[in-house]
């Protein structure tokens, strides 16, 4: 079986295979299908494609498009931040470059999973209608917005996990969880930087009660009820410690209310 037969077979079950490959190739190769060129490039692309999962159920498409919108936002935010001269001090550039790399990877991963169902990238206003007017000229503001976006991401993915429980969505559930914990790693390191740089003294890698800025991002994170049980006093620990031990989800509506001002 040659590579074109394989693609034809895949197309029988996945009518958008050529679109997906087109996206993965990012060269428009399949628009003017050149067999000679494709014979060289296709094996690599197929290998990449077979590692990915596709959203087929309407529920999964909704969830992934919601995630994609947030990832577009983060991706563009960091691209611009990292590229802005004299914004991020040299000591902290490695961290933000790494975060930026992951957000680009997440956008590409979700685009590949959604194929033609992917929503378009909105235009963004990273000042959030003026609330963070100096976001790309004041490192403190940039770091605070970064922290808020990461924690919003953590809470958003967490809130959607339950919508990916259909049998056919199980691979996507795992991928979503694998992105979710990356966002948490990002949020933690930026929280740590907020303290180290003196921007938010006492800020930690974890969320204490509902402390954080802007308040909407951290609303309800002081919850002590888990699995229907009030954990207050568990193991003799403080409310602060108990709240830190559990990250709370946000509804899609709450996330969109937070993200809304960032969309131009």
């Amino acid at each position: 079986m040659n590579i074109f037969n394989i693609l034809t077979e895949i197309e029988k079950v996945d009518g958008e295979v050529f679109e997906r490959l087109d996206h993965i190739s990012r060269r428009g190769m399949f628009n003017s299908f050149s067999k000679k060129a494709a014979a060289v490039a296709v094996p690599v692309m197929v290998a990449g494609m077979l590692n990915k999962a596709y959203a087929t159920t309407s529920g999964a498409i909704d969830v992934l498009n919601f995630a994609l919108t947030l990832e577009y936002l983060e991706n563009e935010f960091y691209k611009k931040g990292v590229a802005t001269v004299n914004l991020i001090p040299p000591t902290d550039q490695a961290i933000f470059a790494q975060i930026s790399k992951h957000e680009t990877q997440h956008v590409n991963f979700l685009l590949a999973a959604l194929g033609s169902k992917a929503v378009a990238k909105p235009n963004f206003d990273f000042t959030a209608k003026g609330a963070f007017a100096d976001v790309f000229s004041n490192y403190k503001t940039f770091a605070i917005v970064s922290h808020a976006l990461e924690d919003t991401g953590v809470r958003a993915y967490k809130g959607q996990a339950g919508n990916l429980m259909a049998a056919e969505d199980k691979p996507l559930l795992q991928y979503a969880l694998q992105i979710h914990s990356i966002e948490a790693r990002h949020a933690a390191i930026v929280g740590r930087l907020l303290n180290v740089r003196g921007f938010v003294p006492g800020a930690k890698g974890w969320t204490t009660l509902a402390q954080g800025n802007p308040a909407a991002v951290y609303a309800g994170d002081d919850n002590l009820m888990q699995g229907g049980v009030n954990l207050k006093g568990l193991a003799g620990k403080s409310d602060a410690a108990i709240s830190e031990a559990f990250d709370e989800p946000l509804t899609k509506e709450a996330v969109l209310a937070i993200a809304g001002p960032f969309i131009a």
Binding site: V154, Y157, K158, A161, G162, M165, L177, H180, S181, I182, E183, A184, R185, H186, A187, A188, I189, G191, R192, G205, W206, Q226, G227, E244, A245, F246, D247, E248, P249
Partner: peptide, 19 residues
């Protein structure tokens, strides 16, 4: 409900790993 609980905990573990 259990999936959500696992989600609430795993991100805290990820924060630990990061720090």
């Amino acid at each position: 409900g259990y999936l959500l609980l696992a989600g609430k905990i795993v991100s805290v573990e990820a924060r630990h790993a990061s720090i």
